[in-house]
Amino acid sequence: MPVRRGHVAPQNTFLDTIIRKFEGQSRKFIIANARVENCAVIYCNDGFCELCGYSRAEVMQRPCTCDFLHGPRTQRRAAAQIAQALLGAEERKVEIAFYRKDGSCFLCLVDVVPVKNEDGAVIMFILNFEVVMEKDMVGSPAHDTNHRGPPTSWLAPGRAKTFRLKLPALLALTARESSVRSGGAGGAGAPGAVVVDVDLTPAAPSSESLALDEVTAMDNHVAGLGPAEERRALVGPGSPPRSAPGQLPSPRAHSLNPDASGSSCSLARTRSRESCASVRRASSADDIEAMRAGVLPPPPRHASTGAMHPLRSGLLNSTSDSDLVRYRTISKIPQITLNFVDLKGDPFLASPTSDREIIAPKIKERTHNVTEKVTQVLSLGADVLPEYKLQAPRIHRWTILHYSPFKAVWDWLILLLVIYTAVFTPYSAAFLLKETEEGPPATECGYACQPLAVVDLIVDIMFIVDILINFRTTYVNANEEVVSHPGRIAVHYFKGWFLIDMVAAIPFDLLI
C-alpha cells in the first residue's frame, strides 16, 4: 500500500533555474538572501570558489559584500557603492579590487542584480563577478574607477581610450546646418538635424578633445543650467548677453562664444560640459537660429522629431539603469545623424518603425519583477520565466494532490484497515475457520451469522477504491517536481505499489 509523501509542494524551481543557467555559462556568482541580516550568502558556485580561493563552506553565510576579499588596494568608495546597491532595488555595476585567499590582487567587475517577489519586494541578490585585470595590471588604489561605466561593446579594446569628441564640431553647429540641408533625401539625416562627426583615429590627448566618459557625465550638469543662461549661451556672438549692473557675465554663455574659444586653444572642462549641455537642449539648428531671432517656433511634425517616441515608452518600462547606459552608448555611435529632440514631445505622434532597438522591449506582467540581467542570462521568455513566489501546480481535472487534506485522511483510514487485516486475518484463519468446520452448517442466516465476513468484505472494497484513487494521485519525481499527468501517474504506480495493492485487495476469504 503506498505511503508516498512529498510535502515540499507547491515547489518553486526558480532558484534552481537560475543556478542551472548560470552554471551553463561558466559564470562566477553568488546568491544572497536579502531578508536576513547583512544579506548572507546562501549559494556560491564553483567558479566563484576558484576565483577567490575560498571553499564553499568558508563563503556560505558570510555577508555578500565580500568584505573578506578586501585588501589594501580595495577602494572604500567601491565598497560603499556595493553596500548601497544592496540597500536599493536597481541593478548596478561596480569595479573593485579584490584579494584572493593567497593574497593576489585582481580588479573585478561586480554586477549586483536584485530579484523581487510578486509584491515588488527584493528577496534575493545575485552578484556576478568578472575579472577585468590581474594584480600586475591593477593601478594605484588612489585612482577611482567606479565613477565610470563599463566599456562599450562596439569599441575595440585597444581603442576604448582613444575615443574623442571634438569640441569644434559642437561649436560649428550653425555652420554645418547648410551642408545638412543640402544633403536632402540623399543624406542619412532628416531636415533640421545636426550631424556630429566623431574622430576615432588614435591621437595624443589634446586640450581640444573630450573623453567619452566626460560626455556621459554632461547629463548630470544640465539641471544646474538655468533657462535664461541656456538661451544666452545659444544666442551666440551676435547678441551678447546682458548683465545687470554690478553683475558679471555668465561664464556659461561665454563658453560657447566662437570668438572667445578661437582665441585660446584650450577650454576648461567645466565650460566644455556646460556648452555641450546647452546645445543638447535645442532640438535642431533651426531652433538655434530661432533663439537668435527671439522667436522659438513649435517643433515640426516630421520623422526626426518622432524618433524618440518609442524611446520614451522603453525608458518607462525599463527595469534597470543598464538600459540608460545602453541608450547613452548607442546615442554616441560615430558617423550617424543625431536628432536633438526633447523627450517631452507630442504624445499624438505616431511611433516610426526603427531597425535598431535601443531599449529592451516591454516586459510582460509575469516578468515585471525580474531584472534585465536575470532575463538576459536565463534566456527565457515571458511565458517560461515565473515570478519568485509559491505557485500552485497546474493539475488535470479529477486529480488528487498527494499533500491535500483528503489524501491525508484517506491514508490514515487505509492504515487502520491494514492494521485490522494484519490482526484479524490470522485470527480468523486459526480459530474461526476451525469452529466453522466443526459446527453445523448455517446457510440460512447468511452474513448475519458471520459479522467478521462483512467487515472483511468492506475492507476489500476499500482497498479496491484505494487502488483507483492512487491512479489519480500526484507524486514527486526525482527532481522534486509534482507530477499531475494521468499517464505518468499510471506508469509510476504500475512500477511501484500496484502489484502489492492488488494482492492485498483480493478477497481470499470469499474465494475459499
Results as ranks from 00 to 15, higher is better:
P2D: 05
V3M: 12
G6R: 01
V8T: 15
A9F: 14
N12D: 10
T13K: 06
L15W: 12
R20E: 09
F22T: 07
E23G: 06
G24N: 12
G24V: 06
G24K: 12
Q25C: 14
R27N: 06
R27T: 13
K28T: 12
F29R: 01
I31D: 01
A34R: 14
R35E: 13
V36D: 04
C39R: 14
V41E: 01
Y43K: 01
Y43M: 01
E50K: 10
C52R: 01
C52Q: 01
G53L: 05
Y54P: 01
Y54G: 01
A57D: 04
V59L: 10
V59P: 01
C64W: 01
T65E: 07
C66Y: 01
C66Q: 01
H70S: 05
G71N: 01
R73N: 09
Q75D: 15
A78D: 12
A79G: 05
A79E: 03
A83L: 12
A83I: 07
A85M: 03
L87G: 12
E91C: 13
V94Y: 01
E95K: 12
E95A: 05
I96G: 01
R100A: 06
K101V: 01
D102H: 01
G103H: 04
F106N: 01
L107T: 10
C108K: 01
L109G: 15
D111N: 13
V112F: 05
N117Q: 13
G120P: 07
I123H: 09
I123E: 09
M124N: 06
I126D: 01
F129C: 01
V131W: 07
M133L: 13
D136I: 11
A142W: 04
A142E: 14
H143Y: 14
D144G: 14
T145E: 03
N146K: 06
N146E: 10
R148L: 08
R148Y: 05
P150F: 06
P151N: 11
P151G: 12
P151T: 08
S153R: 09
S153W: 07
W154V: 06
W154C: 04
W154F: 12
L155E: 09
A156W: 15
R159W: 12
A160V: 15
A160T: 05
F163S: 14
L167V: 09
A169W: 15
A169L: 03
A172Y: 01
T174W: 15
T174N: 05
A175H: 05
R176C: 05
E177R: 09
E177W: 10
S178K: 08
G183N: 09
A185C: 09
A190M: 11
G192P: 05
V194D: 01
V196M: 15
D197F: 04
V198G: 01
D199F: 01
T201G: 14
P202E: 10
A203R: 14
A203D: 05
A204N: 15
P205V: 06
P205F: 06
S206V: 09
S206E: 15
E208S: 06
E208L: 06
E208D: 15
L210A: 06
L212N: 09
D213C: 06
D213M: 12
T216K: 07
N220T: 06
H221G: 15
H221N: 06
V222T: 06
G224I: 06
L225A: 06
P227R: 05
P227F: 14
A228T: 13
P237G: 13
P241C: 15
S243L: 09
S243P: 06
A244P: 11
G246K: 04
G246H: 15
L248E: 12
P251D: 13
A253V: 14
H254M: 13
H254C: 07
S255C: 05
N257T: 14
A260H: 15
S263H: 06
S264M: 12
S264D: 04
C265W: 15
S266D: 09
S266C: 07
L267T: 12
R269W: 07
S272A: 06
A277R: 06
S278G: 09
V279S: 14
R281I: 03
R281Q: 04
R281S: 07
R281T: 15
S283F: 07
I288S: 11
R292Y: 14
V295I: 14
P297E: 08
P298R: 07
P300I: 14
G306Y: 14
G306N: 05
G306F: 07
G306P: 14
A307Q: 11
A307R: 11
M308R: 07
H309L: 07
L315Y: 14
L315W: 03
D323N: 13
D323T: 09
V325S: 12
R328Y: 04
S331L: 01
L338R: 14
N339T: 03
F340N: 15
P347N: 03
L349S: 03
A350E: 07
D355M: 14
I359R: 15
I359E: 05
A360S: 04
K362P: 06
E365M: 07
H368T: 14
N369M: 04
V370H: 03
E372Q: 12
K373R: 10
V377K: 03
S379T: 07
L380E: 04
A382S: 04
V384W: 09
V384Q: 08
